[in-house]
Design a protein around this nucleic acid. Structure first.
Length: 401
DNA sequence: GCGATCAGCT
DNA sequence: CACAGCTGATCGC
């Protein structure tokens, strides 16, 4: 596709139209409240959440695309020196709330950008997405596919999310007297929490900033910031460590559930290769596993595939695994762009001294220091750390200074 | 002082 | 390992 015409999840260069697949941080790098390069197309849910992530963002830039809809855009082509027609179809990606894929059709051919997605065809939503995609393709195949290759390796295999959600309910049910913490991010895994809430008939604690997001998503009664109302708490994944679980267990018996497609995530709970006795990693993933990616490739049969995740593990060219599908030889095609093994570039051996600043202290392994920058960020974005602290202080009965 | 970016970590 | 994201340091304005 012509450069400068369309950007998807890229915000730093000039373009005629910008498309947002979903609001996770790794897809909004370069977006800011001041960003104003051009029209931003996104799903209704992303449009609804965007102002809370970027306060003061110019709303006149936002163009809402309904999920399942097809829109015709007229863009200016610099190379042709004239207007060109681009038809864009917005498809449910079944990743986090608001996540969509985009199918672009125009003189450049047929380009599909998946963003992050889960191709879980036993679910009704994924079947709807498939229907939308097939109708938009009109029997054609995809020329260029930009694929969520997060789990593009045969070793990755996990059950449908509803199966894993039931496993989580079982784990919690087997621990009737334990507190429960579940690691989640700023957006995503709401369906899991919803399932737990309904199956156990309980509210779920979230930190205040996350409660705001839950309210924006339309969940009004299920979630609470009052830790007295429930033994089940969803906590920020980054604050969820072996030490956290250990220290919580000095106060009250607590199990930790870490939903992730990454089997090595269990390492979070590992201490000297011993799995923590209270830790339950579960294979709940909002990305497609390998067999689902295979199914997807069979359906769209792309001529060219580019992985959009360039992590050191997943940099492997998706074509490598799918080259024997449908008689396509992806090995012959253009090499995978933009994917470099980060570890080769990473500088090592910094000998800078780490200075421990005043004001940092720990209670039961939980850090209570907040630096100047963190306070500014908190004021801009909302109180995440403060409330993680509040969770602990309420349990520890410690007063914050 | 502030935003942007990077290193480091989980 | 790093899904997605926090923190602190540094740099330029």
């Amino acid at each position: 596709m012509e450069k400068g015409l369309i950007s998807v999840d890229r915000w730093g260069q000039e373009s005629q139209a910008y498309f947002l697949t979903h609001l996770h941080a790794d897809h909004t790098k370069g977006l800011s409240p001041q960003w104003c390069r051009g029209p931003l197309f996104c799903s209704p849910i992303s449009a609804h959440l965007l102002p809370s992530k970027f306060p003061g963002f110019d709303p006149s830039l936002i163009r809402v695309l309904d999920v399942g809809s097809t829109q015709c855009l007229s863009l200016h082509s610099h190379t042709a020196g004239s207007q060109v027609r681009v038809v864009v179809t917005t498809i449910d990606a079944h990743h986090c709330p608001g996540a969509v894929m985009y199918l672009f059709r125009g003189e450049f051919g047929c380009v599909l950008y998946t963003g992050d997605f889960r191709w879980e065809l036993r679910s009704k939503r994924a079947m709807m997405g498939k229907k939308t995609l097939l109708e938009a393709l009109q029997g054609d195949k995809v020329d260029a596919l930009y694929l969520d290759n997060t789990y593009c390796h045969p070793s990755f295999s996990f059950p449908p999310r509803e199966v894993v959600a039931e496993q989580v309910v079982d784990i919690i049910t087997r621990h009737p007297n334990h507190d429960v913490i579940i690691g989640i991010d700023t957006l995503g895994k709401e369906d899991l929490l919803l399932h737990i809430s309904q199956a156990l008939g309980t509210k779920i604690w979230v930190w205040p900033e996350r409660l705001q997001i839950m309210h924006l998503l339309g969940f009004d009664d299920i979630f609470t910031t009052n830790s007295n109302l429930t033994r089940v708490r969803a906590v920020p994944r980054y604050s969820f460590t072996f030490d956290t679980l250990e220290s919580l267990n000095t106060i009250h018996p607590t199990i930790g559930i870490m939903p992730s497609g990454l089997p090595w995530d269990s390492k979070i709970f590992n201490n000297d290769d011993k799995l923590h006795q209270y830790a339950y990693p579960v294979l709940y993933s909002e990305h497609s596993c390998f067999s689902e990616l295979q199914e997807f490739m069979k359906l769209v049969q792309p001529s060219i595939v580019t992985g959009i995740v360039s992590s050191s593990f997943c940099y492997i060219n998706p074509r490598h695994y799918f080259s024997r599908l449908n008689n396509f030889n992806y090995e012959k095609a253009e090499s995978l762009k933009g994917n470099r093994n980060k570890s080769l570039l990473r500088r090592t051996g910094s000998n800078r001294l780490k200075v421990r600043k005043e004001g940092k202290f720990k209670i039961a392994g939980l850090s209570f220091h907040r630096g100047r920058v963190a306070i500014m960020r908190k004021e801009r974005r909302g109180a995440k750390i403060a409330e993680t602290d509040a969770l602990c202080t309420s349990k520890l009965n410690v007063k914050m200074g």
